[in-house]
Design a protein around this nucleic acid. Structure first.
Lengths: 119, 119
DNA sequence: CTGAATCCTATTTGATACTG
DNA sequence: CAGTATCAAATAGGATTCAG
């Protein structure tokens, strides 16, 4: 769905309208992004390895690209500690924080409607 | 991103937790879905051709699959009128209506943060 | 520990043409 | 008008390996 990301940014540059919802969607779309945002929003700060631990099935590379895109979008902050071995901590930016209400609402909606989908 | 759709449904069947947010995301993910939901939520009922008209660039086939998936997820209702030429009208179900606050929030967030992304 | 580079595959979207 | 079928293109996600 990163097609959306690029496409929406292009639309914005061109001053096209009607892409506000797509903008928001394009940011949180990605198999792990909302959950990453959710955890960072509730836990505060997490190391790369801690996030990786939260998703047993995520690949190293995939996590890297997901956080990188979120960083590009200004949603999360990446702080590198010049140590050996390296330590990298991620946290929500203010912009990312402002996304939390939406994420929480999605969480609530999902919780309330889980049964409907459990055939 | 319909990979998510299938995957989340499987998780739900297996009684796995922590997929509430993904459930919500999996429903609205898709290049045109939130916008379709948005229009149906504000305009009420729309014919297939009317929706198609709203998205000059959408393909016949793609629109078909998007509405079909939304229908499968119980978000929209499809009413077929046995006429010639055929008429098919789409509208939000109650479940779909309950999604509107989220869609509207995404709209607002996008509107307020458009500038941040317009470098 | 974090992450970069490759390579590979499944999925999604799109183009096009055909049907009742 | 609405929908289907087929085929092609793009890309997101994953497996694996190497590096500082």
């Amino acid at each position: 769905m990163n097609d959306l990301r690029r496409e929406v940014r292009k639309k914005i540059e061109n001053g096209e309208f009607n892409c506000e919802k797509e903008l928001t969607l394009s940011i949180i779309s990605g198999k792990w992004k909302i959950t990453i945002i959710y955890y960072l929003g509730t836990d505060g700060t997490l190391r790369f390895s801690e996030i990786k631990h939260l998703f047993p099935k995520i690949t190293h590379k995939v996590l890297t690209t997901q956080v990188r895109e979120l960083e590009e979008d200004g949603i999360i902050q990446r702080r590198v500690f010049p140590e050996v071995p390296p330590r990298v901590e991620y946290s929500l930016t203010e912009l990312g924080q402002s996304l939390m209400p939406i994420v929480l609402m999605m969480y609530e909606w999902g919780k309330q409607n889980l049964k409907s989908f459990n055939k």
